Deep mutational scan, measured.
Amino acid sequence: GKELVLALYDYQEKSPREVTMKKGDILTLLNSTNKDWWKVEVNDRQGFVPAAYVKKL
Rank of each mutant, 00 (worst) to 15 (best):
W37L: 04
A51V: 06
A52I: 11
L29Q: 00
T28V: 15
L8V: 08
E41T: 07
T33P: 04
Q12N: 14
N43I: 11
N31Q: 10
S15Y: 07
L27C: 10
F48H: 05
A52T: 10
Q12I: 14
N31H: 07
E18L: 05
N34Y: 09
L30E: 03
K22Q: 10
V49W: 01
A52S: 15
I26F: 06
K35G: 10
K22E: 06
G24I: 00
P50D: 02
A51H: 03
R17S: 13
L57N: 03
K22C: 11
Q12Y: 14
A7N: 01
P16C: 10
W37P: 00
K55S: 11
G47V: 04
P16L: 09
N34H: 11
G47K: 02
D25K: 03
L29R: 01
G47D: 01
L8P: 00
K23G: 05
E41K: 08
E41D: 07
L8A: 04
L4W: 14
K35V: 12
E41S: 10
G24W: 06
I26E: 04
G24C: 09
L57I: 15
E13V: 07
N31Y: 06
P16F: 09
V42A: 15
K35P: 14
L57T: 07
V5Q: 01
V19C: 09
G47S: 02
L27A: 08
N31T: 08
W38Y: 08
K39T: 08
D36L: 13
V40M: 02
N34K: 07
L57E: 05
E3Q: 13
W37N: 02
L8D: 02
E13A: 15
M21G: 00
V42K: 15
Y9L: 10
D25M: 14
Q12F: 15
V49P: 01
K23P: 03
K23R: 11
L8H: 03
G24D: 06
G1D: 12
G1K: 14
P16Y: 09
W38R: 01
L27M: 14
A51Y: 02
E41F: 06
L57Y: 09
A7V: 11
K56S: 08
L27E: 00
D10R: 03
L29K: 02
D44M: 12
G1L: 13
L29I: 05
R45C: 06
A52M: 12
L29A: 02
W38F: 07
R45Y: 05
K23F: 05
P50C: 04
V5R: 02
K2D: 08
K22N: 08
L27D: 00
S15M: 08
E13W: 05
V42Y: 11
P16A: 13
K35L: 10
V5L: 12
L4F: 15
E18D: 05
K23H: 06
K39N: 07
V19Q: 03
A51M: 05
W38D: 00
V19G: 02
Q12G: 07
E18G: 12
G1Q: 13
I26P: 01
K56C: 11
D36S: 10
N31G: 07
L29M: 04
M21S: 00
Q46V: 14
P50L: 03
A7T: 04
K39D: 04
Q46M: 09
V5P: 00
M21H: 01
E3F: 10
K35N: 13
D10V: 02
T33Q: 12
K55L: 12
E3C: 15
N43V: 13
K14F: 05
I26W: 05
L6H: 04
K35I: 10
G24H: 05
L57D: 04
K14G: 08
G24V: 00
K14T: 12
A51I: 03
A7Y: 02
Y9F: 14
T28S: 08
N34G: 09
L4P: 04
A7I: 02
W38H: 02
L30I: 15
I26Y: 07
K35C: 10
V49F: 00
K35S: 13
K14Y: 05
E13R: 12
P16T: 10
P50T: 02
S15P: 04
E18P: 05
L4H: 09
L30A: 03
